[in-house]
């Protein structure tokens, strides 16, 4: 199933900014890999905060059909 919020784990540096700042709280911290994971994707508002704040540009946001 297609996802709209995609984290590139090769780039992620575990700074936690996305997890800390997300206005809809859609991320959780995966304690095993110590990196964020999208847990509540259907609540994403496409505000772009995680995408623009990520210091490694590790988050990609892909336009979904339901917004069209």
């Amino acid at each position: 199933m297609s996802t709209a919020i995609r984290i590139d784990y090769r780039r992620c540096n575990s700074c936690r900014k996305c997890y800390d700042l997300c206005p809809m709280d859609i991320f959780i911290m995966d304690e095993e890999i110590k990196m964020p994971r999208v847990a509540y994707e259907e609540e994403c508002a496409f505000c772009g905060v995680c995408w623009m704040e990520c210091p490694k540009r590790a988050i990609d946001i892909v336009y979904p059909p339901s917004m069209w």
Partner: peptide
Amino acid sequence: PSWKYKMAYNFFAPS
């Protein structure tokens, strides 16, 4: 039936 991505930031923040 699937409500995915209906929290779109149309103008007012979904919060």
